[in-house]
Design a protein around this nucleic acid. Structure first.
Lengths: 224, 224
DNA sequence: CTAAATTGTGAAAAAACTCCGATAAAATCG
DNA sequence: CGATTTTATCGGAGTTTTTTCACAATTTAG
């Protein structure tokens, strides 16, 4: 993990306070003492920075301006540090893509909690691995595991399996399968599907029986 | 869009207030007057509900309990409605997966702004399409586009390209490439990589030059 | 500049994949 | 139960993908 956070505030004391707490929590910190420096540091560390703590009131370039400029090119999470309870500002900011507010004065605990919450939310591994009765499918990685063991599936096999599991418990007609897994205009032998089903079942081993045959219709994936 | 929001609060007046504002903004509203009802409504509308506004203080089952139970099975965004400024609660809640707090009393504007901010954040199609100098890769869909035009890449070509772009600006040795794109124990001709590189470059057209040859080492993807 | 090393390229061999058609097996119906 | 319909399975033909190999082009070193 070890996320990198850019702290932007004109008060050195405030920066130090924030920095110390976040470092104690294992974060890496970059600092900037005004808006211009913030943009500079940001542009040089785009890929590294995971979150920005941005003070609103600053000399040279205020927090809103910095926010706007950064939002032109990046969706990095930004927490604004504001004077207490300025509703107008909050509304203003959400539209611009502020992720969170923290009002000064704040307790370091709150700070850390919010930072972690936001990072958790955004860092949240976008990788989604879905489990269908022990058949794990990682669509991003295009991999399938059964009981933890990776399976080698050809393109058609993979797509057919994905189509079946994504329609778990739904009986799929051969027509539907052909139209969805094959090109729309494919006009082939309907035994083709059977052939692939056979191979998938075989590769799934014991779990092959989750692919049910629905006589007169087609197939259905059902964990039972 | 038209998101559905579950409003849980024991005060009918409060529910009505929230409901009216959110409906005015085009949301669909479900209501529950206590924790138990909330769970009931939730379990019956799991797939429909996009966000939950959850009061903390309620008879029968309080907000925290509801939160915990819902988090057992769902990541639906939850905004807690709390009495003003209870730090302890906030810390407590972030760990449990609270997405946001709104302190009573709040202005309807703030409410709507936060709801919209959260929905914007979470509804954000999980589908991620990354752009590397005009080469767009959708890993979930396993598609590559160059300047908007889809490319047909074979398995190896695709994986090799993904490996290169994900290590943008890093020179990758042939060894490393073999170990990562091919099976770990692959023991083939080293011209194999070149062959695929050639095909990829060709398919990328003008952008093929982003794949740089690093003599004596291997290749590097670099947009320049 | 020349020789050596490394990479690019195209063609062809090898491997993998997809699809088809024939036959076997199973389920259903009368 | 026997006939009929439907699905399972198998082998192999036709494709596509992957790999290999020989040679050309390029870069680097001396």
């Amino acid at each position: 993990m070890n996320s990198c956070i850019l702290v932007v505030d004109d008060e050195a004391r405030m920066r130090k306070l924030i920095k110390d707490f976040l470092i104690a929590k294992g974060f890496t910190i970059l600092e900037a003492e005004d808006g211009e420096k913030a943009l500079e540091v940001f542009s040089q560390n785009k890929n590294k920075i995971n979150l920005i703590l941005l003070d609103v009131m600053m000399p040279k370039l205020d927090g809103w301006s910095v926010l706007r400029q950064i939002r032109q090119e990046s969706k990095v999470p930004i927490i604004m540090l504001t004077a207490r309870g300025e509703e107008q500002d909050e509304l203003f900011g959400f539209e611009l893509g502020v992720d969170e507010y923290i009002s000064k004065p704040f307790s370091p605990k709150i700070l850390v909690a919010r930072v972690e919450a936001i990072l958790k939310r955004t860092n949240q591994d976008t990788r989604e691995i879905k489990d269908y009765g022990g058949i794990e499918i990682d669509k991003e990685g295009r991999t399938v595991k059964v009981d933890g063991k990776p399976l080698e599936l050809s393109l058609r096999e993979y797509e057919l399996l994905v189509y079946l599991v994504e329609n778990e418990n739904i009986a799929l007609s051969r027509d539907k399968i052909l139209n969805n897994v094959w090109n729309y205009d494919y006009y082939g032998d309907s035994r083709t599907i059977d052939s692939h089903i056979k191979k998938i079942r075989h590769k799934l081993g014991k779990k092959g029986k989750y692919i049910k045959t629905i006589r007169g219709v087609g197939y259905k994936f059902e964990v039972k």
